[in-house]
Nucleic acid binder design. Structure first.
Length: 427
RNA sequence: GGAGAAGUGGCUGAGUGGUCGAAAGCGCCUGAUUGCUAAUUAGGUGAACGGGUCAAACCGUUCCGCAGGUUCGAAUCCUGUCUUCUCCGCCA
């Protein structure tokens, strides 16, 4: 969330930003409430001073006879104090509700526009979409042909949107993970296998609403636990409430987890197969940085995503997300969209990664700070996240781009030694 | 899963209803002193929020895992919750 003081002092910029992002929030009311709250806060503090002094006097009294009348007075003071506190808390709660709706400010270079039509293509990967001299299959057909992906079994055991990976597909899945983790370790990331469940309070801290009619989150009955939708939740939770030394930053983590999403109301042709599923494995990059580092680290995350997809020979384009298409916490977001020959009529771009600089929007909520030696006080860190591989979609991109006329799939060079073969699905 | 114990400042650790934001030690910072890779000594040393200031100083409120409760008053008593440890049981 944004700092209240910042909102108060930059109300016009905040309003403009909300318009750019196509988010409706009553900023004026927020400002008005916060101004009132500050006055009330002073009142509460003064009443507290009074009540504390009165209590102290009772402690110093000689005997009960002296004490009783003082108690009566103190009780009244406390009543006044509590009443003022209640009024303050009400204001505070209302402000908080509004404050949570206010999105992060956007990077000045961010393309301005109310939806994804204004997204800006920044560039393409090393590999251009391939011209097939045969009719390419989609990943579902390939998966069925070789018994690599079993959706029917997934539905029967678990439900629609679940699947089994089998045979060489498992080798590919594991090889991608191993490759990504090794590459990220080379670049200073600490590999971190996280829990797949987290306490609801952690979800809420990161900005997910675990229970309720519109939730995308699976939660465990009779427990305050939910399945995570991304390792961002657990990795953020890992540092929530902590203060680190500035010299430790940037902290770069490579999260490995399963991700669970209900995907309520997202069925249809565009989400066939592995594209939109309820469970997938994800190798996620996450970074905590100093404020002045975050832009550079964001570029680094984007570059890593490009390097990974170049390495597996998948064509992609890089998109600079427009203001109206940004999630609330993002200051700037780049997506990689891979070419998927089996998608749509004759191939379409499909999102495979996403990297966001969330500046201090999440850390303020999570209370993650850094301290500078010899300086008083602390500041909020910046947080960034980026997908290395979301396995489900990475698998689609490899199968569909590297398929051969006979239905086999040529394995990207960097994965061959890991998988112990050059081709999968060979006759 | 059952029984018990515990969570205090950067760390160790005292504190069972008021004088406690909190003893003591360690660490760290500043000064003094000794001519030696350190000792001795004096002092200082948490955070958030609000006010204040050019910036400080300074003032106020809050914070002893977290959330509630009792009380004029809670680190201290009560409830819930999270975490850790010990013992028992079960288990990959």
């Amino acid at each position: 969330m944004l700092d209240r003081k910042y909102i108060l002092e930059n109300a016009d910029a905040v309003k403009q930003n909300c318009d750019n992002r196509n988010v409706k929030v009553d900023v004026d009311r927020l400002v008005q409430l916060e101004t009132a709250r500050r006055v009330k806060q002073q009142e509460v503090q003064d009443l507290n001073t009074e009540a504390n002094a009165a209590s102290k006097k009772i402690g110093q009294a000689k005997d009960d006879a002296q004490r009783e009348p003082l108690k009566v007075a103190a009780r009244q003071l406390n009543k006044n104090k509590d009443a003022a506190q209640d009024e303050h808390d009400k204001l505070d709660a209302e402000i908080n509700e509004l404050q949570l709706l206010v999105p992060n400010m956007a990077h000045p270079d961010c393309p301005v526009g109310v939806d994804d039509k204004s997204n800006l293509e920044l560039g393409r990967g090393k590999h251009a979409p391939r011209e097939f001299d045969f009719k390419p299959l989609d990943h579902l057909e390939l998966g069925e042909k070789h018994d690599w992906i079993d959706f029917e079994g997934g539905s029967r055991t678990t439900g629609n949107g679940f699947y089994f990976l089998k045979g060489e597909m498992v080798l590919l899945d594991l090889a991608l993970q191993q490759y990504a983790v090794a590459e990220l370790m080379k670049r200073g990331f600490t590999p971190t296998v996280t829990p797949d469940l987290a306490q609801d309070s952690v979800l809420e801290g990161i900005g997910f609403n675990p229970r309720g009619p519109e939730t995308q989150i699976y939660s465990i009955e009779n427990m305050n636990l939910s399945l995570i939708g991304t390792a961002e939740i657990t990795l953020g939770g890992l540092y929530s409430g902590k203060t680190v030394m500035d010299t430790e930053l940037p902290i770069k983590l490579c999260g490995i987890s399963h991700c669970y999403r209900t995907e309520a109301g997202a069925a249809g042709r565009a989400s066939r197969g592995l594209y939109r599923v309820h469970q997938f494995t994800k190798i996620e990059m996450f970074a905590f940085t100093l404020p002045e580092q975050s832009d550079a680290v964001h570029e680094e995350l984007r570059q890593i995503e490009c390097d990974l997809f170049d390495a597996i020979g998948v064509p992609y384009r890089v998109v600079d997300t427009a203001t109206g298409d940004l999630g609330g916490p993002a200051y700037r977001k780049y997506d990689l969209e891979a070419w998927m020959p089996g998608r749509g009529e004759s191939g379409e771009w499909g999102e495979v990664t996403s990297t966001s600089n969330c500046t201090d929007y999440q850390s303020r909520r999570l209370n993650i700070r850094y301290k500078q030696k010899d300086k008083k006080g602390t500041n909020f860190v910046h947080t960034l996240n980026g997908t290395a591989f979301a396995l489900s979609r990475a698998l689609i991109s490899i199968l569909e781009n590297h398929q051969n006329a006979d239905g086999s799939v040529t394995i990207p060079e960097v994965l061959r030694s890991i998988m112990g073969r050059d081709v999968m699905g060979a006759a």
